[in-house]
Simulated assay, not measured.
Amino acid sequence: MEETIDLRELFKIIKRKIWMIVLIGLIFGIVSGVVSVFFITPMYQSSTTLIVNKENSNSETQLSNSDDINYVQKLAYTYSEIITSRAVLGKTISQLGLDISYKKLASCVTVTNITNTQIIKVDVLYKDPKTAREICDTIPAVFDKEIQRIMKVSGVEVIDKAIVSSSPVKPNKIKNVILASAFGVLLGICIAIVQSLMDTKIKTSSDIKEHLDIPVLGIIPKQK
């Protein structure tokens, strides 16, 4: 006979196994907290924003029509790729004397083009807040020289300089503990349901009627 559980029975199972469900949730939450505090390296983020220039014959930035604006916006996407190139990040590593490979630094740098603007946002995620700011400030300076050498055009101007982050952005300890605890509770509920489905013992008169389909003539009371 196929085993099925209605909503009422599900609540009964959860109520009977509530101690186990809560315990599993607590264990997962505690383990997540310990891992977040002692085993995951905190990461700090610094950000800077750049504006792309279009050089005219007078070496001044003028965006007089939609063609100029579209041109500069497309140029911003090209610049974004160059920012994370070996030419830029390699010189950034050299100038700051960082003990890190180009690939590792590239994985720490995120470049975003602000939609429908000529603005580029550069985010640097690093384990040391001061180094994160130094990288974030050095990249635009190196990039400005490289872009003029590579493309023979005017460079970029910094809108907002990077600042030292006062607190890490990763790991988010509270979020990790909440998610791990919720997962533990769901896991506990699943275990309780599986245990109930696998338990074939006859415990009550209703179990006899349901599973054996025979009438109950009488019940012997449990002796105290």
Rank of each mutant, 00 (worst) to 15 (best):
K15Q: 06
K17N: 15
L23P: 05
L26P: 03
G29S: 10
G33F: 07
F38R: 09
Y44S: 06
I51C: 02
I51F: 15
N53K: 13
S59K: 12
E60S: 14
I69V: 14
I69N: 00
A87N: 11
L89C: 03
G90Q: 04
K91A: 10
K91V: 08
I93R: 10
S94K: 15
G97Y: 08
L98H: 10
I100Q: 02
S101F: 11
L105K: 09
C108G: 08
V109C: 12
T112Y: 04
I120S: 01
D123T: 09
V124T: 08
L125G: 03
K127D: 06
D128A: 06
D128R: 05
P129E: 07
P129A: 12
K130R: 08
K130G: 01
A132I: 11
A132N: 06
A132V: 09
R133Q: 14
R133L: 03
I135T: 05
V142D: 03
D144F: 10
K145P: 01
I147A: 01
I147N: 00
V153K: 06
S154L: 08
G155W: 15
G155F: 15
D160R: 11
S166H: 07
K170H: 08
A182M: 13
V185W: 01
L187G: 05
I189Q: 02
I193H: 02
M198W: 10
T200P: 00
I202L: 15
E210C: 03
L212S: 00
I214T: 12
I220Q: 01
K222R: 13
